[in-house]
Every structure is written in structure tokens, then in C-alpha cells.
Design a protein around this nucleic acid. Structure first.
Length: 289
DNA sequence: AGGTCAACCTGAGCGC
DNA sequence: TGCGCTCAGGTTGACC
């Protein structure tokens, strides 16, 4: 998935095509993704003006003039195309999609705007989702209600994080992946953050000292901010014709670098990969303690 | 209550 | 060429 920076990149890519614009028609090619689509989704979207596109954690919310909001989650493989162009290519482009008009395999929802832009939601693995909710009750939606603070927001600070990690015996990596504690981090950025703070991902969260917890805050903010500025991360070696793909993968220091030398000056370590709760962790055994 | 793990899916890449 | 296996950026719900 796309993690927070990739979702923010997608949101920004959708803004020129959608914000302030009217939805002319909607084609829904299957009844569900991860969950069933909301009742009469196409009808409830058609004719609506999109007032604002915003992001909460890894979710995109399109606030409509009707008082409803379209909630979108990209799952692991969800992609958005604007008139055939992929936004923030965090997933390898496949098949005949490059610049070709649709439809293509896994184009599940197609939204035509009155301005002529065509928004396509393509998701091979179908872990993504869409829902409609009352805009004024968005915070109570089941997918949003339990989310922790935005890592780039004002309420996320050392005091909060220390309290959230207190008493947690889970590995610090699992804790930082827990969206109830902090919303928006995923496997890549947690690996990068723990490497850059010199913390062993296996350490029980509660055993981190106050200094380590405090050190996490600016590193989390910096990594996410830099990744957003780079347009997110692109896996595989996909390059988009219009240059819209992200570039933060060039700044990965541990993710995907198993067997390669540690990049910390003076460290002779070799990056290792091991599994934590079923997911790959990349770390330097020498400088993460 | 907190922590761990399987499950949900398709596709790419690898070794044989 | 093809088969079987592993892996993939997320999240939920069942089970200790």
C-alpha cells in the first residue's frame, strides 16, 4: 500500500481533476472490493460537486455538496488514474495501461467528471475499499473512528507517544504499525524510521527510553515529509512517461537492502531481513539496538 | 486486554 | 514454456 506519503501523492494528483468539479457519471464494474460497495453508490455520486479532497491516515475523503463523503482506501495494490495516467506510481504498471484508454483488467470504478477528466480506480488484489458516509459524522465511521493521531499533526508529540507506548510489550515495530497508536505508517516507513533512530525493531515498545521515544518524533515527521515531497515511493523500476512516479525509494536506507552494507558512517554492519508478525523487517544488526 | 496469526486476493520473480 | 514456490507498501477478526 501505499502508505501515508503515497496516499497524499494520490490525493494531490486528484485535486486538479476533481476539486470543485461535478461528477457526470459513475461506472461500477463489480459489486464490491474488500467489502460491498454502499447502496446505490453510483447514483449517490452522480451529479455531485466535489467540494474538497482530504486525507486521513491512508484514506482519501471526497466531500460532496450533498453532505456525503466518498471514502477511498487503496489497500495494497489500489491505483488511481486520471484520464489514463497513473498518479504516484507506487505500484508497477502492468499490461497495456501505459497511456492507453481503458478499460483494463481490475478497473473497478470509473468516474467521469463534467470537465472531461476520467478517474479510474484500479486494484488487482482488491484489498481496497470505498464507502459513503455523512461528512459531519466522518470521524465516527468504523474505519476512521479508531485511528490514532496524524504523525504530521500537532497532537503527535513525545508526550503522546510515550504514553501510547507505555506498558506495551509488543515489539516497537508492531506498535508503530498499529494504526490506533499512530495513523499512516506502514512497513517501509517504519523500517526506515527505526533504522534512522538506531532502534532495534524487536525491542518491546515499553522498554524504549524517553530519549528514544523523543527521537522518533522528528524522524517520523522528516521521513514522511521528505517522502511526500518526493512524490512517494515507487517499487519495481517503473518509470512513468510524464514523470509522475515517486522517487523516495532512492532514499531508502534499509528497506529492500538485505545483504548490502549499512549506510551509517563508520558502521561495518550488513543489512538483514527477518520476519515480524509475518512481515519483512529490514535492519542493521550493528547500529540498531 | 494485549499480542499473534491466518485470511482476504492477484501478480511478479525466481529456481528447477 | 511451465510449474511451484515466495514475496508484496494493509487491515480485520479469530484465537490464544
Amino acid at each position: 500500500m501505499p502508505e501515508l506519503p503515497e496516499v497524499e501523492t494520490v490525493r494531490r494528483g486528484l485535486v486538479p481533476a476533481m476539486e470543485g468539479q461535478v461528477i457526470a457519471s459513475v461506472r461500477v464494474n463489480r459489486p464490491d472490493l474488500r467489502w460491498p460497495f454502499p447502496a446505490r453508490m453510483a447514483e449517490r455520486l452522480t451529479g455531485q460537486q466535489v467540494l474538497t479532497l482530504r486525507r486521513r491516515s491512508k484514506y482519501i475523503l471526497a466531500d460532496l455538496a450533498s453532505g456525503e463523503s466518498l471514502l477511498v482506501h487503496l489497500g495494497m495494490s489500489g491505483r488511481m488514474l486520471v484520464s489514463g495516467r497513473l498518479i504516484g506510481a507506487y505500484w508497477q504498471q502492468t499490461g497495456a495501461e501505459g497511456g492507453q484508454p481503458g478499460p483494463h483488467k481490475h478497473d473497478h470504478v470509473v468516474i467521469d467528471m463534467a470537465n472531461g477528466a476520467r478517474i479510474t480506480f484500479n486494484d488487482p488484489r482488491r484489498f481496497g475499499s470505498m464507502d459513503l458516509l455523512r461528512t459531519d459524522q466522518a470521524d465516527r465511521h468504523r474505519l476512521l473512528a479508531g485511528l490514532g493521531p496524524e504523525p504530521l499533526g500537532n497532537s503527535f508529540d513525545a508526550r503522546y507517544l510515550a504514553a501510547a507506548l507505555a506498558g506495551r510489550r509488543a515489539p516497537v515495530k508492531a506498535a508503530l504499525l498499529d494504526q490506533r497508536i499512530i495513523a499512516g505508517l506502514g512497513n517501509i516507513y517504519v523500517c526506515e524510521v527505526l533504522y534512522r533512530t538506531g532502534i532495534d525493531p524487536r525491542r518491546p515498545a515499553a522498554e524504549l527510553g524517553a530519549d528514544s521515544v523523543a527521537a522518533l518524533i522528528p524522524v517520523i515527521r522528516d521521513v514522511l515529509t521528505q517522502a511526500i515531497a518526493a512524490g512517494g515511493s515507487t517499487l519495481q523500476d517503473y518509470q512513468q512517461a510524464d514523470g509522475a512516479s515517486g522517487a523516495f525509494q532512492d532514499d531508502f536506507r534499509v528497506y529492500g537492502r538485505e545483504g548490502q552494507p549499512c549506510l551509517t558512517p563508520g558502521c561495518a554492519g550488513v543489512i538483514t531481513r527477518f520476519a515480524q508478525s509475518g512481515r519483512s523487517t529490514f535492519a542493521c544488526p550493528d547500529c540498531q539496538r
